[in-house]
Design a protein around this nucleic acid. Structure first.
Length: 445
DNA sequence: TGAAATGTTGGGGCG
DNA sequence: ACGCCCCAACATTTC
């Protein structure tokens, strides 16, 4: 009589360095891998359109890899807690393992599931797989959490080094008869009418093997001049690993292990540090996507939304070349170079005076790498309302930014060749209006 | 992980 | 040779 182990996959769509999967292997019972597509009833934020496209293909890749190794990979849809509970009953599973999540609704859900299963005598264990440093382990001298990045990251680096990554299993043994699974196509994660995913297909190959290829390539070819070239959107020198980390195709432990062995990786690793900082911030402030972290920004006098301006920004029709290039890269590829993200975000917030939440929602729907922490965190960083944020009066001038970081215009001509050239707003005047609005907010305190 | 305004300095043209 | 002015180039302050 067997009592299978369930490995519940979530934001960790990989075989290598997967501690939950490792624990199941060590338990030496048949393994049932499962991914649950929640129907939204649990308060979780559903992935946006581009993210669903990625999820589909990453799941397809992982399922194939599990199957190749003799395992089973199930797809189930419904309210998460009920789905897991039913699966345990149906398979008479003796254990459920997963890697931890750090968002508010996710933690609440996972805690409840853990308690309920344990009450039924099921072994439940969760593991650290998605963050190098778990939020409750990084504390200031006065036992609070950090609100400034530099001391935060210094404190992380002073902790015991992240563990070595775990090897990828060669074989997985499933139960004699596989439980039923949904058909991935029935989940309708891919866009159909219209199919707008052509640019995504041209740009990306989701899945763990391609993630590993890109990591190798980045470390060998791009990391040596990451410090300078990373700021130039046409240089192609950024890692492009953000969606790999978002979906867990690549473990941060693997990244850490490989990068720290190379000279001059400090800058890149500190970018990984910003990802950690964003997740820690979300852990301590679960409403990050909807509420200003700095409450004084609640008094910011956002004018009534002008939908045509928001639409012009979304479509890359602002008449500002670097902004339009960025927004078109985003629409086409599901990705935008980091510096251009800052410029387009600054333009929406400070030149169009549109609430950062509208921008956050658009990026959520169009980015393949948007996650619950980094996306709202970075929007609040630009808005000035976030943790260790840019002060509001730091307004990017997209023309100057283009001059500094896209001197030859390669990026703009790649993405905004036929974009309008008449700016919808005057950069100088709108900058002044934004500073005045900021001043109004400060006086309102 | 800003930009613009304002201040300072120093070389060169010129009377 | 000198003072004056102009203005780049850089530094500092302010938003």
């Amino acid at each position: 009589m067997t009592s299978p182990s369930i490995v519940w996959f979530r934001d960790d769509l990989r075989l290598a360095d997967n501690p939950a999967l490792r624990a199941a292997i060590d338990r030496e019972e048949p393994i049932i891998a499962v991914y649950v597509l929640d129907d939204g009833s649990s308060g979780l934020r559903m992935p946006g359109g581009a993210a669903r496209w990625w999820l589909h293909h990453s799941l397809a890749s992982l399922r194939e890899r599990v199957t190749e190794r003799g395992g089973v990979f199930l797809l189930r849809q419904g309210p998460t807690a009920a789905v897991i509970s039913e699966l345990v009953a149906e398979t008479r599973a003796g254990a459920v393992f997963w890697n931890r999540r750090y968002g508010g609704p996710e933690r609440e859900l996972d805690t409840g599931i853990k308690a309920a299963l344990r009450q039924r005598g099921v072994e439940v264990r969760s593991f650290a797989g998605s963050l190098l440093f778990e939020p409750w382990t990084v504390r200031t001298g006065s036992d609070t959490h950090f609100s400034v990045f530099t001391p935060f990251w210094r404190a992380c680096l002073a902790l015991p080094a992240p563990r070595d990554p775990l090897p990828e299993p060669r074989e997985l043994h499933g139960p004699r008869t596989a439980p039923a699974s949904d058909d991935l196509d029935d989940w309708q994660l891919l866009p159909t009418a219209p199919d707008w995913a052509g640019g995504l297909r041209e740009t990306w190959e989701p899945g763990e093997p391609a993630a590993r290829v890109r990591l190798r390539e980045f470390l060998e070819e791009d990391l040596p001049h990451y410090d300078t070239a990373r700021d130039e959107p046409a240089a192609g020198a950024t890692s492009l690993l953000s969606p790999r980390l978002r979906w867990g195709e690549l473990s941060p432990f693997t990244l850490w292990h490989d990068a720290t062995r190379q000279e001059g990786a400090g800058r890149f690793l500190s970018e990984i540090g910003w990802r950690e900082f964003a997740w820690h911030t979300l852990f301590h402030f679960p409403q990050l996507a909807t509420r200003n972290l700095r409450r004084e920004f609640d008094a910011f006098p956002w004018p009534r939304l002008k939908p045509t301006r928001l639409a012009a920004w979304q479509r890359g029709e602002t008449g500002i070349p670097l902004v339009d290039a960025g927004m078109r890269e985003l629409w086409h590829t599901g990705f935008m170079h980091n510096r251009v993200r800052m410029v387009t975000a600054s333009f929406l917030i400070k030149n169009l005076l549109i609430d950062w939440r509208r921008g956050e929602e658009w990026f959520w729907d169009t980015l393949v790498d948007a996650d619950d922490a980094s996306n709202p965190f970075n929007w609040q960083w630009v808005a000035g309302s976030g943790a260790d944020a840019a002060t509001y009066f730091r307004v990017f001038n997209p023309e100057l930014q283009a001059k500094k970081f896209d001197r030859d215009g390669h990026y703009v001509s790649e993405w905004a060749r036929d974009a309008p050239t008449e700016p919808i707003v005057d950069l100088g005047e709108t900058r002044k209006a934004a500073l005045a609005a900021y001043e109004t907010m400060r006086r309102a305190r």
